[in-house]
């Protein structure tokens, strides 16, 4: 436990002293605040619109957290991890007495901290916003579906963070790591398009590609079956086919598997390669 507190202390010190960290945090807080302010203002203008818990959880979590959140986590992970190699400060940490495994554990703590922060911030801002809203909510503050959505968000952030940690550990420089990260996003779009056109079987397989899994996991309809049923009824009335997603469990397992693979490879890379 003592070593964990030491790792936490040094990673916090490394992060809070960097300007880019505060710029990213500030920008995200602004992103997270805008929909809440908008929601409260709309409620005051139009009493038919509600901004209250638990009904507003999808808005609170979806707008800010599902949008820029994962990108902020990815970029911050790269900016907080990759320079440890290019500046050779990770090497100095090991010379000072950390093992390579503990150096990695420090980065895992950074990842956990970022996930927590990027979930907690929109939640706190959103919940704070409901206090200023005149509308009344339901009897429960939070429902199991809201928790499911929050869990989905955590998995998405874990995926982006672990992928960034992997790129940082492999490429050891923030510029190339960021470049490859964005290239991966574009590449998967291209691969999905290609598979979609190739045939029925490959089309079905595109659902399991990483970013498609995350896209589904971040869709509030996956977590709110009643909403999905309503949408599908409307679609049926219009003569369109229903929206279908992989089971939530399958999506969660797929996201966890990808993240675990990324974390395992980055751990092995950090342990095996010379600093």
């Amino acid at each position: 436990m003592k070593i964990l507190s030491v790792l936490l202390r040094i990673e916090v010190l490394k992060a809070v002293k960097r300007k880019v960290f505060w710029v990213a945090v500030g920008a995200f807080v602004v992103f997270a605040t805008i929909p809440t302010v908008e929601g409260v203002r709309n409620t005051r203008r139009n009493p038919n619109l509600a901004y209250a818990l638990p009904e507003s959880w999808p808005d609170i979590l979806g707008t800010a957290a599902m949008g820029p959140g994962p990108f902020f986590v990815a970029v911050l992970m790269i900016l907080l991890c990759a320079p440890e190699f290019s500046w050779r400060t990770g090497r100095q940490n090991v010379i000072d007495g950390l093992s390579k495994e503990r150096l990695y554990a420090g980065k895992a703590i950074v990842l956990a901290g970022l996930i927590l922060f990027f979930i907690a911030t929109p939640v706190l801002i959103g919940v704070g916003g409901t206090l200023f809203s005149p509308s009344e909510g339901g009897p429960a503050v939070i429902r199991s579906t809201d928790l499911s959505y929050m869990g989905g968000l955590a998995l998405i952030l874990l995926f982006f963070g672990s992928a960034s940690l992997l790129l940082s550990a492999l490429l050891r420089s923030s510029g190339p790591a960021l470049g490859v990260f964005f290239l991966c996003l574009i590449a998967e779009e291209a691969v999905t398009g290609l598979m979609w056109r190739t045939g029925e079987r490959l089309r079905a397989a595109t659902q399991y590609l990483p970013f498609n899994v995350l896209e589904a996991l971040g869709d509030d309809l996956v977590h709110y079956p009643e909403e999905l049923a309503k949408v599908n009824t409307e679609l049926a009335e219009r003569g369109s086919g229903p929206w279908e997603f992989l089971d939530l469990e399958v999506l969660a397992i797929a996201a966890l598997t990808y993240s675990s693979i990324f974390l395992a490879i980055s751990f092995l890379s950090m342990r095996k390669r010379d600093l």
């Binding site: 010190l13 500046w87 940490n93």
Partner: peptide, 19 residues
């Protein structure tokens, strides 16, 4: 090899925490 954006004392704080 130290953190270029930190001052000398803060860099030593990291080394001191590890040690």
């Amino acid at each position: 090899n130290f953190y270029p954006y930190m001052n000398g004392r803060d860099n030593l704080r990291i080394a001191a925490a590890i040690k």
